[in-house]
């Protein structure tokens, strides 16, 4: 603490909290990072943001699997947006005379038990899966960050209460908790979003709390206190940005589990309601035709696996890019 006494002399009013802040940070950086020799300091987290993102991008570009995944995810996002306009058939149009036809030139992925075109339905399902994944992770992130930040920063009984509730949620397998929530909320894709989002809150709360506990001890946070910044401002401007990299990695991996959970709820018949197309729901409804028409079960499953795989690879790549030390070579 003593080294902060000289810039802010006793009696001097704290500097207005605008650009002056950066000076404090650079002082901390200047003192702690001359040649990166201080071991307990995680450099990747504390470089200036521009460098961090640039470095991350460079490292990510070198990782072929992650890059391909990123391109694939971009392609999925495009499909989610324009999908409904490019499907060769109406994805919810039934045609019983044409049911369970194997893949052909007219129907690339064949038709399902109601004669609906599977190719069109797989494309239409992209929007559902990606939207649910993103929304569920957004819910979990928002609530998780707030709870984790408050717990980590406040400490004491607030911390104990929040984290014990998180422990309770973690002591029920997430898919069981999600379907129990669905029982209370009712069926439907909007309910699925809420259920999947709620059950993944504890992961984020834990991560954010952990990073905050470790970051809280750093000198620049102490410095921010000394210059008289409010707690919420310190959390938002100084603590959270430094926990951001960990959160981004977790959120990317979180989308993959949200996509899996969506498919699982759909498979159990708790997700979208027919005739809307969703990958898990397609598998659930076609499973009676497993021997008669295996193609009905191949393509939706491939779509789920490829999407989840892409988010997992991207998440792994981001983790390596953001924290070279965590890389296992």
């Amino acid at each position: 603490m003593s080294k902060w006494d000289s810039p802010v002399a006793p009696g001097t009013p704290p500097e207005p909290a605008s650009e002056g802040l950066v000076a404090d940070e650079t002082m901390a950086l200047g003192e702690l990072l001359p040649d990166g020799s201080i071991p307990e300091f995680d450099e990747t987290l504390h470089e200036k943001p521009e460098n961090q993102w640039l470095e991350m991008w460079r490292s990510l570009k070198a990782n072929r699997a992650a890059l391909v995944s990123l391109i694939f995810i971009a392609f999925l996002a495009l499909l989610a947006v324009i999908g409904p306009y490019i499907t060769p058939y109406n994805p919810i149009e039934t045609n019983m005379a044409n049911a369970l036809k194997p893949p052909s030139a007219q129907h690339w992925f064949g038709t399902d038990q109601l004669g609906m075109d599977i190719f069109s339905r797989v494309i239409a399902g992209t929007r559902v899966s990606l939207t649910v994944g993103l929304l569920a992770v957004s819910i979990a992130l928002t609530v998780g960050i707030i709870l984790g930040a408050v717990a980590g920063y406040a400490g004491g009984w607030v911390d104990t209460v929040i984290m014990r509730v998180m422990d309770m949620m973690l002591s029920v397998p997430s898919i069981l908790l999600a379907i129990t929530l669905m029982a209370a909320l009712g069926k439907g894709i909007d309910k699925a979003v809420v259920a999947i989002g709620l059950v993944s809150i504890p992961e984020y709360a834990r991560i954010v709390r952990g990073s905050i506990l470790s970051i809280k001890e750093n000198d620049y946070v102490a410095a921010a206190h000394v210059v008289g910044l409010s707690d919420s401002r310190i959390i938002l401007r100084h603590v959270l940005p430094n926990a951001l990299s960990v959160i981004i990695v977790r959120a990317t991996l979180g989308i993959s589990s949200a996509v899996l959970d969506t498919a699982a709820l759909g498979f159990l018949g708790l997700g979208v309601q027919p005739p809307q197309a969703e990958w898990g729901d397609m598998l659930g409804r076609a499973r009676g035709f497993i021997f008669q028409a295996p193609h009905t079960l191949l393509f939706p499953g491939m779509a789920i696996t490829a999407t989840v795989l892409a988010f997992n690879l991207l998440g792994d790549g981001l983790r390596d890019a953001l924290d070279p030390k965590a890389r296992i070579k």
Binding site: S256, L260, A263, A264, F267, G280, L283, R287, I290, F291, P294, L297, G301, I304, T305, V308, L309, N312, L313
Partner: peptide, 18 residues
Amino acid sequence: ALVGVSIPIFWLGILLIM
């Protein structure tokens, strides 16, 4: 390991049965 964490349990089950 990668495919194992990415493939939905129920789809893997369906593939195994097939």
